[in-house]
């Protein structure tokens, strides 16, 4: 019959009042990301061999690093001195972690990166080293 749809619609909408809300309370409750989510990197200075591959592969050129000779005269090679990721530029493409031969740089699930100034987006070696929670299990 013509017109019954109005009441059907009104009744359906009224029933929605008691339904469970489908929205997530994001800032109050954290969002759990899937395992392979690409968040900001975690850097382990001890593992780094200063091969420079991450800086070379980076499509946006956001990684700058410098090495210094190994303080232990017995050992050859270099150790990392400074390691900066300019997070204004980083596109989280995951290439630096794929290319790293020693897994010195790995991805984490952290994505809460909003800051008030652009200066805070430059992440240095110390910050990246401390960023050691929610490190991604599977890196390749």
């Amino acid at each position: 019959m013509w017109g019954t749809g109005f009441f059907k619609g009104l009744g359906f909408i009224l029933k929605q009042l008691k339904e469970k809300k489908i929205t997530s309370q994001y800032p109050d409750e954290p969002v759990i990301m899937p395992d392979r989510f690409r968040g900001i990197q975690h850097f382990i200075p001890e593992k780094c061999i200063v091969c420079n591959q991450c800086a070379k592969i980076c499509p946006t050129g956001c990684i700058t690093l410098t090495g210094k000779p190994n303080p232990d005269p017995e050992k050859k090679g270099k150790v990392i001195d400074t390691y900066d990721i300019n997070f204004e530029l980083c596109i989280l493409c995951d290439l630096c972690t794929e290319v790293c031969p020693t897994d010195a740089i790995v991805m984490t699930n952290n994505f809460e990166l909003a800051t008030y100034t652009r200066d805070n987006t430059l992440k240095d070696r110390i910050w990246l080293d401390k960023n050691n929670i929610n490190v991604r299990e599977e890196n390749h």
Binding site: I13, L14, Q16, L17, E19, K20, K21, I22, T23, Q25
Partner: peptide
């Protein structure tokens, strides 16, 4: 508020 509840929002 009411329309939010009806649309399963808060």
């Amino acid at each position: 508020k009411v329309i939010g509840w009806m649309q399963l929002r808060n």
